[in-house]
């Protein structure tokens, strides 16, 4: 492994993140606070407890996942799209690095940024609700796996995208609906039976359910399924990235 190359890519990506630190930091804090004010305080006060947890606390894992998934994809996609856009990708293609090293560098940085934002949101939420984490290790594992696998998906989108519109397309049209309908703000047991079945085809349900289990010990689907789903998703993305580099799709002539 060319560790120095991985570090060079990682460090350069993180420098970009820290260059706009205020923006990276303030935006999730502000949006999370708004969600808590609207869903937690205004609407939440009229909702009973869900699965024995106050509604304001119940939405915390979903909110964190919502931001982490979006941030992982956006950072993962932008990280590799930008060198394509400005042309500096020539340097990556002519360097003594293989696909794994490029992916570890870019995806590692994108996942770190998303993780950072996830932690910021969690910290912000403690100002609004009393939060206890029943399974801290599982929580960290779910968070890290989600950051990594969705950063990988973002990386694939970044390679596929040929313009900025396409870069926004997948997150906007597919990911946001999946996350919103994946039980971020409700338990799927609240849905009519038919929609409960439909929802089970949404992979994000497994993530949010598993993540929520780590906090409160209650889940919509068995936690083993959740872990399997996220690991399987990461493997599919990794296989896709491997194929992209093997064939040079959209990056090499």
């Amino acid at each position: 492994m060319n560790w120095k190359a991985i570090w060079a890519i990682y460090a350069s990506e993180m420098t970009r993140f820290f260059r706009t630190l205020a923006q990276s930091f303030l935006s999730p804090v502000l949006s999370t606070s708004l969600y808590f004010v609207v869903f937690g305080a205004a609407i939440g006060s009229r909702i009973d407890q869900v699965d024995g947890v106050s509604y304001a606390a119940f939405i915390v894992p979903g909110l964190v996942m919502l931001s982490v998934i979006t941030q992982s994809i956006t950072n993962g996609a932008f990280g590799i799209y930008f060198p394509k856009f400005v042309g500096t990708i020539y340097e990556l293609l002519s360097a003594p690095v293989n696909f794994l090293e490029v992916v570890v560098g870019f995806v590692g940085a994108a996942a770190t940024k998303a993780l950072f934002i996830g932690v910021v949101i969690l910290a912000t939420s403690t100002f609004f609700v009393d939060l206890t984490v029943q399974h801290p290790l599982a929580m960290v594992a779910f968070l890290v796996l989600t950051c990594l696998s969705f950063a990988l998906l973002g990386f694939i989108i970044g390679i596929w995208a040929e313009n900025f519109e396409q870069l926004q397309l997948v997150p906007l049209l597919i990911v946001t609906p999946l996350v919103f309908l994946g039980g971020s703000f409700y338990s799927i047991s609240m849905l009519p039976p038919f929609w409960q079945t439909v929802t089970l085809f949404n992979p994000v349900v497994y993530l949010i359910s598993g993540f929520r289990w780590a906090f409160f010990g209650v889940a919509d689907v068995p936690v083993g399924f959740s872990l399997l789903a996220i690991t399987g998703f990461a493997c599919i993305c990794l296989a896709a990235v491997w194929w992209i580099f093997r064939t040079g799709w959209r990056i090499r002539n």
Binding site: N2, K4, A5, W7, A8, I9, A11, S12, T15, E91, L92, A95, P96, V97
Partner: peptide, 14 residues
């Protein structure tokens, strides 16, 4: 300076 240093690292040089 940063971009030149990045290139050196990318090629695996200390």
């Amino acid at each position: 300076f940063d971009t030149v240093r990045f290139s050196r690292g990318l090629f695996g040089k200390p």
